[in-house]
Amino acid sequence: MRTLAYRDVVDAIKNMVIYATTHLGEDMLQALKRAYEEEESPVSKAVLAQLLENAKLAATQNKPLCQDTGLAVYFVKVGEDLRIEGGGLKEAIYEGTERGYREGYLRASTCDCFTRENLKEKVGYNLPPVIYFDIVPGDRLEIEYAAKGGGSENASRARVLAPAQGIEGIKEFVKEVVSDAGPNACPPYTVGVGIGGTFDYAAVLSKHALYREVGSVNPDPELAQLEAELKEELNKLGIGAMGMGGTQSVLAVHIETFQPGRMCHIASLPVAVNIQCHSARHAHISL
């Protein structure tokens, strides 16, 4: 049994939160540069230039890339042979999140659904986070983090299709969601598509698909081809950067299925589309 100190987990999460919200990942920088080079509309090209300039400025000044520093969303894999010493793992994630958001001068964006009262006093600064735990063999702790903004969540959707609708039905649904998102959710988008499992799990898969490195190839060749086809078709919508019209509406499409077996119920075809804005702030740590 390997042990990990509670304090080390808190510090690692805090540092990850502050770094990820101020430094755009190398994969995203490359994707935005490529979009800038390929964009045909001068207006959208100018927007992309501003986004690259913003990323440079944020990193230099350690200033948040965007004022919406999101809900903190974690996917956590805990090794069966790992024990946290000095406190609970969930508690450590809460404390690391709160300290990261507070000490990094990030925005506290959690509120009561009904009264809309900010939860920073009642629950904690930008608490609670959303956490998905998984237990895996081994003695490591893997934590994936995203600062997920409200605008792009508002444009996301889940639907259970009839099996007969098949791949064509999935494509139509993805196109519908991205077309409706249009200028609202800060394009160019990364589009996370979750397929399979249950109604709820398809949405979790669509969220997790966004943590994949932008521009990486799906290991399932059939899905890799579907991703490429979808990207090409979505870029024909003409949305452009910030919706001002252009050829670069989508940076990547990432599809994730329920494993093993790309499973779903014999009666269902659940599909969810999670939209990611161009300020895709993701990071992971392995302890």
């Binding site: 927007v47 501003q50 986004l51 300039e53 913003n54 400025l57 944020a58 000044q61 200033k63 948040p64 890339l65 965007c66 004022q67 605008g151 249009g182 200028p183 609202n184 959710a185 800060c186 910030m242 919706g243 001002m244 804005c277 161009h278 300020s279």
Partner: peptide, 28 residues
Amino acid sequence: KGRRNEAVKEACKRYKAVYFGAVGGAGA
């Protein structure tokens, strides 16, 4: 940033106001 509804666009026409877009995600 993002679309407005018809009521806002109509009010812009009737009372002479404009809706500007700034670049979302360029907060710094």
